[in-house]
């Protein structure tokens, strides 16, 4: 009995933990939003009828998309250079990307408070070189949140993509050169298409991470730039409106899972190495 099901027994504790404390509670959160109030979808009707909340959802999408696009571009180009760098330099560059990644979200967001604040480094610098007479209000804008988020996610993108680029065999690049393709053509016709699945994976990581973030928008956006994460916290812990918080949670879960499923499918279809 035990012997035949040994695999099950070994996997049981971890499976139980996930089912009991993740699946059931999250299902409970999602379930609590249905059949609440008038009509089965009342909390959602409520959410989408509020101009403010629509604005929050929209802003969160904007910030996440901008963060994804910028860190994708910076990350890919940087990763390309890193992957082609001589070995010693490469390990230094990788360490320099890993270090911020392992430093906490709060610490890294906090750094931008010092930089972008009214008496911050950037304003002092601009005042000193005479670009402006008045400090700019850079904090608590959509821009400040995006800058900090890009800062947060670019290292992740670089590391993901260095891995992807290093998996492209050198032989393919040499084959391309031997057939007469210049380095530019090789990049466009061989390296980039082969990196697309990796780019999609990186983009999904960054998008879902930004979409559900809390600390960075809280520190750099505050109440002025409320996003889904901060709104959810406010609903749950300030207004004690748990149905509203659960509704926001459900929207986050649905969007996250939909994007992950959709994009991993797209990435799989575009991945020629898999077939």
């Amino acid at each position: 009995m035990l012997k035949r099901h040994i695999g099950w027994w070994l996997a049981l504790p971890a499976t139980l933990l996930v089912v009991l404390f993740l699946v059931l509670p999250v299902a409970g959160t999602i379930g609590s939003t249905f059949g609440e109030g008038a009509g089965p979808f009342a909390p959602y009707v409520n959410f989408f009828s509020s101009g403010f909340r629509r604005r929050v959802l929209w802003r969160t999408l904007e910030i996440s998309l901008a963060t994804t696009a910028i860190s994708l571009l910076l990350g890919f180009l940087t990763a390309y250079v890193v992957s082609r760098a001589p070995r010693n330099l490469k390990s230094i560059l990788i360490i320099a990307a890993v270090f911020p990644l392992l430093t906490g979200v709060v610490v890294r967001s906090f750094a931008w408070l010092i930089i972008l604040g009214k008496n911050g480094i950037l304003n002092n610098l601009l005042l000193a070189i005479g670009v402006t007479d008045e400090p700019f209000a850079m904090l608590y804008t959509q821009g400040s949140v995006i800058v900090a988020m890009v800062y947060l996610f670019t290292p992740l993108m670089i590391l993901t993509l260095v891995g992807v680029l290093e998996n492209i065999p050198d032989d393919l690049i040499q084959a391309s050169a031997s057939l007469g393709a210049s380095p530019g053509s090789t990049f466009r016709q061989v390296v980039f298409p082969l990196a697309v699945p990796g780019l999609i994976v990186g983009a999904v990581l960054v998008f879902t991470g930004s979409f559900t973030s809390y600390a960075t928008p809280q520190l750099l956006g505050g109440e002025k730039q409320m996003v889904m994460g901060t709104l959810m916290y406010q609903q749950a812990m300030v207004n004690f409106d748990w149905i509203s918080a659960s509704t926001i949670a459900t929207i986050m879960v649905v969007i996250t899972i939909a994007i992950v499923l959709l994009m991993t499918r797209v990435a799989k279809r575009l991945n020629p190495m898999a077939t």
Binding site: P169, D171, L172, A177, S178, T186, P272, M273
Partner: peptide, 19 residues
């Protein structure tokens, strides 16, 4: 540079472009 040499090369592991 290699890409200007005009030499046909057949690789050990074929090096076909998978995409």
């Amino acid at each position: 540079p290699a890409y200007k040499r005009d030499i046909g090369l057949v690789f050990q592991n074929y090096a076909l472009f998978p995409h």
